[in-house]
Structures are given as structure tokens and as C-alpha cells.
Design a binder for these strands. Structure first.
Length: 155
DNA sequence: GCCAACGTTGGC
DNA sequence: GCCAACGTTGGC
């Protein structure tokens, strides 16, 4: 699984909490607050600097892909897990054995338009995307290279 | 705001 | 290790 090839990802964010415009303004941000082991494992074990990311807005009027970002760092411990004042504080974690890892994400561009979840669902070619699988709630997930190319073609 | 689908927790 | 209860996600 660790070839030198660029891989593709989709990362969800609620725009009220952190939107593609927020990332554009800040240029680069730690993707903190992920508290799901599968999502963590993708960041910790499989992401490489330079991997491309679809930035997805969830839990909003028109959920969908709104932009492109890039993995900017290797994985490192999510600082918010050590901060008792953070809502992401995890008393079960320690600096010696951090439970939660993250990567920094760098802004690349906004899409000209939102490619909505509804639109993605309408394409049979994308039916195998983890995003579209019933009941999937992962906030960080892989995107197959052919799906990445296909979706870019929709823009 | 509702609720289905999951993930996590904790009693046993 | 089972599983009910609970919490969260996220579309609608």
C-alpha cells in the first residue's frame, strides 16, 4: 500500500465549522478533531505529502465536493487531544502514547461549482465510491484514481 | 428537527 | 465476548 504514487482522498467538513473558504484564507490547516479510528488510520498510515483531496461540505444545504486540497505534512499527534479546554480533549490519550493523529491540509483551489452529493449519486460510474455507500459516515476516505478523474471531468 | 446507520461503552 | 444503551454523523 505504500507505493510512491499520489493517492486521492475525500475529507468532509461542516462549512459552519470549517469551510473551503476558511481553508483558502488560512492556506494550510491541521485537520484536527477526527475521532474515528478508521479515519485516523488513513491519515496516519496511508496519506503522503502531495496526495490530493476532495474537500467536501457536509451537514449543510447542498452537501457536495467544493474544492481541492493537498496533504501538506506527514501525520503527527493531534494537539487538541491534550487540551482539556478543547471539545476534542481525550483524557484516555497521552503525549507518550497519543491516540489521535492528523495531517495538515493545504488549499489548492475551489471548484467552479459545487458537485453535489445528489449529482454524484446520479452517476453509475461512481456507485462504488465509499462516499456513496449506504450508511457511510467516515469523514476521511479514499477516492479511486478513476473516480477522481471522472469527478474532475464533471466540473 | 427527525431518524437511520454506525461506532463506542460498559455491565454482565 | 456479548449486546443493550447511548452518542454521533449527516442526509433529508
Amino acid at each position: 500500500m505504500s507505493s510512491g504514487k499520489t493517492r486521492y482522498w475525500l475529507m468532509k467538513s461542516e462549512p459552519e465549522a470549517f469551510s473551503i473558504d476558511d481553508l483558502k484564507r488560512k492556506r494550510q490547516e491541521p485537520w484536527d478533531g477526527v475521532r474515528n479510528y478508521q479515519a485516523r488510520n488513513f491519515m496516519r498510515d496511508e496519506m503522503r505529502q502531495g496526495d490530493r483531496i476532495f474537500f467536501y461540505h457536509s451537514n449543510c444545504a447542498t452537501p457536495g465536493i467544493v474544492g481541492i486540497a493537498e496533504v501538506a505534512t506527514d501525520a503527527y499527534p493531534d494537539p487538541s487531544q491534550f487540551d482539556p479546554k478543547s471539545k476534542y480533549f481525550d483524557p484516555g490519550s497521552s503525549r507518550d502514547k497519543p491516540r489521535w493523529m492528523l495531517v495538515d491540509v493545504k488549499f489548492v483551489k475551489k471548484l467552479k461549482r459545487t458537485i453535489s452529493l445528489e449529482e454524484l449519486k446520479s452517476h453509475d460510474a461512481l456507485a462504488e465510491m465509499p462516499l456513496l455507500r449506504k450508511g457511510n459516515r467516515l469523514s476521511v476516505m479514499p477516492v479511486a484514481a478513476n473516480a477522481w478523474t471522472y469527478i474532475l471531468g464533471l466540473e
